[in-house]
Write a protein that binds this DNA or RNA. Structure first.
Lengths: 261, 261
DNA sequence: GACAAAGTTTCACATAATGGAACCAAAAGG
DNA sequence: CCTTTTGGTTCCATTATGTGAAACTTTGTC
């Protein structure tokens, strides 16, 4: 029975339908949606009509399928532009990618989760958005820990409460206590590691992007594999990453708060 | 009043609120939204609450501002990957840009408006996303007319009703009648022109990207200025543009519907 | 031509949205 | 320190809106 949870209000239900379509990753038939949703026929039908009429979904009358609509694409651009760090940081991220030749992640914190807002892949030189936009856990990723380390106590508390502490690998820090110890170490040295805590073989070195007030407004990381490099070699890059992060920070500060003394 | 139009249903209204927040491009205060929306205080407030609770918006309690939320970013990401021509068309657009050396636009139709999903600028070689995402009128742009020309009658009707027919320049087609005549000519020759109809000095040649069923799923255009070239010279490129458009179409078709006979 | 499956419309009913007004908190101003 | 204003949140009677079983219309199948 509805593993989901709280779907209160008409708007909430409509958004659930949207999510359902999105989760398929391809055009879906009405009947497919009907079988997997708890909504009665007519209700589901009306939601699909409304969402289509609103441009959030697109209906292909020939094939009788629904897919995500252009209005969402437009919102995608707005969201991208508004997640402020990405457009500002772009040239700096490019620079870091070029200098290291490794995979770069730019992330922001949202409700205890990590939101990747930009990415440069080592293999495929310029790919984007298709990669960005993903969300991930904070407690077991480099960027996540880097940002958690600079959260004010109250916000940290809230964020920790939202972590699953699922043990992805044998190195995963699987309790708030262990994580807090690690966060202290991160603050001491100014950068965070991912020691195969999320995926085996994947390591990274991450640095927070701090506002003037000392809050983490994002994080930047260089990722690689144990097959190709070592944690020590990645740490050698920490200075460079911090430098780039500082420049992004300065740029962001002047952009977001042009008027100040 | 309310220049907008038909905002039917609760869901539609909520989405309008979403759009409103998105359109600001920065975190917005409740009161700002209140002044520019027609909704009464309590109603607007409830929508904001709902959308925030649903993760479509994020509320910053310190500053008391609303911005786009993670769920939206996730949906937007999916929409970009699934429903936008941009990722599929990218290599072909690159090719066209290189071969022509002119500004290229890739657009899709969004409720009677043109949504630019990718762009290559003649001057600055690789700029993107920041530029893309803009919306423009359909009745006075090359890509817009190219797509309108291949809309089924019913959809065309709806789209025409949404055009302002504002006379941007002396060449603007400023009535549905004139536009319909033009659309017929476009269908006859397979490509559309922008004869300085939107901005003086700006001309373009645009081609629709058609699905197998003959529907316009997007449009592709080469833009230049009267200072640098002529309409005739642009038309000489029509064959090339059509070729590229056909290849994008084929790619899109096979991508969206992998299983078919 | 009969049968089934998928999709669309209807309509009596109840839930859920509505918005004016009251309320609260925190600045501004005297 | 007390008043006023501005910005934000909660109440609650009213009614518009959403609801979903069932009937109906395609469209496809044997």
């Amino acid at each position: 029975m509805g593993a989901e949870g709280h779907a209160d209000g008409t708007v909430g239900k409509a958004l659930d339908v949207l999510d359902m379509v999105a989760s398929h990753g391809r055009p879906v038939r009405f009947s497919e949606l009907l079988t997997e949703s708890a909504f009665p026929k007519a209700t589901l039908y009306r939601f699909l009509q409304t969402l289509t009429h609103q441009g959030m979904l697109a209906h292909d009358p020939d094939r009788g399928t629904y897919s995500l609509g252009v209005r969402l694409v437009r919102l995608a651009h707005a969201a991208w532009a508004q997640s402020s760090l990405a457009p500002i940081a772009r040239p700096y991220v490019d620079e870091l990618a070029e200098k290291t030749g490794e995979t770069i992640h730019l992330a922001q914190m949202d409700l205890g989760q990590v939101l990747y807002v930009d990415k440069r892949n080592a293999a495929r030189p310029v790919e984007m958005f298709a990669q960005a936009g993903k969300v991930g856990p904070a407690y077991c990723t480099g960027v996540g820990k880097a940002m958690l380390a600079y959260l004010p106590e109250e916000a940290l508390e809230a964020a920790l409460a939202r972590q699953s502490f699922h043990r992805h690998t044998e190195h995963t820090l699987d309790s708030p206590a262990k994580l807090r110890t690690e966060l202290k170490a991160i603050r001491a040295r100014g950068h965070a590691f991912d020691r195969e805590e999320h995926e085996p073989g994947i390591i990274c070195c991450a640095v927070p992007i701090l506002s003037r007030a000392g809050r983490a407004i994002g994080a930047l990381s260089v990722t690689s594999t144990t097959a190709r490099t070592t944690l020590a070699a990645l740490e050698a890059r920490a200075g460079l990453i911090k430098d780039i992060a500082a420049r992004i920070s300065a740029e962001a500060e002047s952009w977001r708060f042009p008027e100040q003394g």
